[in-house]
């Protein structure tokens, strides 16, 4: 028994020495806690994650990179932080912003507040911007998403990120687009094709009656070239046919979810009549 006890004591002392050395002989470094998971829970999001969300929107849902790229369709935004400061003092500036953040938000929802020389809608002498309002039309960024894009723009252009991560909008964002649609008040059907084109900013990319952008095919005489079925299909499924000389995946999908059937027919009839 004595042997047994001394062996036990010896073993316990050995374990005690190892444990003691591990606890007191070496520095106890507290490992960093696990990084926060990147989910769209705005409440617990860090600014870096919020900026990353903005970056995704910038090249994804926001379709900003369609034009703001190095092909010269729209101004590059890599120095927008610095440039915005000068814009505010520019005599041609028509908006109400007083700082960079406000200017950027304004540019996203009221693009014509300042049009960079040479980038205006054709024939408006740079008075009107071809850029659509990103909160409406087919892009439909919500307020939180616009804030995220602004955060990304500030961050990527080297400006100080001044936006605050919205707290109360978190829930709405998580619900996604479907929730948006469901919550939105049903609107009145529109029967004026010009209004529809303005609402969905088709002329941001398409030339219609000599006015509009050059990203999509010129629709000024489309009725002479294509029949109604083709036009309907192209609105509902933009990648079904790609006009020669144009890239696929440029036109936003989902028009079918946003237009009423009567409106679709109004548009198709209008386009078919352009000869």
């Amino acid at each position: 028994m004595r042997q047994f006890l001394s062996v036990i004591v010896f073993s316990l002392l050995t374990i005690g020495f190892f444990a003691g050395y591990s606890n007191f002989g070496i520095p106890q470094i507290e490992p960093a806690p696990p990084p926060k998971e990147e989910k769209l829970d705005l409440g617990s999001m860090t600014m870096d994650q919020f900026i990353a969300v903005g970056e995704k929107l910038f090249s994804g849902k926001g379709t900003c990179t369609l034009c703001h790229n190095n092909l010269g369709r729209a101004p590059l935004l890599d120095t927008i932080g610095e440039v915005a400061q000068q814009r505010l003092k520019d005599p041609r500036y028509k908006g109400e912003a007083t700082n960079i953040e406000e200017y950027l938000i304004e540019s996203l929802v009221k693009p014509s507040a300042f049009v960079v020389a040479g980038f205006g809608k054709k024939g408006t002498n740079d008075a009107e911007s071809p850029m659509p309002d990103v909160s409406g039309g087919s892009i439909r960024l919500d307020e939180a998403e616009i804030t995220a894009v602004v955060a990304y723009l500030q961050d990527s252009s080297g400006a100080e990120v001044t936006v605050e991560i919205p707290k109360d909008l978190g829930k709405k964002k998580e619900g996604g687009e479907e929730a948006d649609v469901a919550e939105a008040e049903p609107r009145e059907a529109i029967s004026d094709p010009e209004k529809l084109i303005a609402m969905f900013t088709c002329d941001a990319c398409h030339m219609i009656n000599g006015v509009g952008g050059e990203i999509g095919p010129d629709l000024s005489k489309i009725g002479a070239l294509r029949n109604r079925d083709y036009l309907r299909r192209s609105i509902l499924d933009p990648n079904a046919d790609i006009a020669e000389g144009f890239e696929p995946d440029q036109m936003p999908e989902g028009m079918g979810e946003q237009l009423y059937v009567s409106e679709l027919e109004v548009l198709v009839s209008f386009l078919a009549g352009l000869k």
Partner: peptide, 15 residues
């Protein structure tokens, strides 16, 4: 418990 424990904590569990 997703955090990584310190060495001392681990040593105590092992002991």
């Amino acid at each position: 418990d997703a955090f990584t424990p310190t060495l001392g904590y681990a040593a105590n569990v092992v002991s």
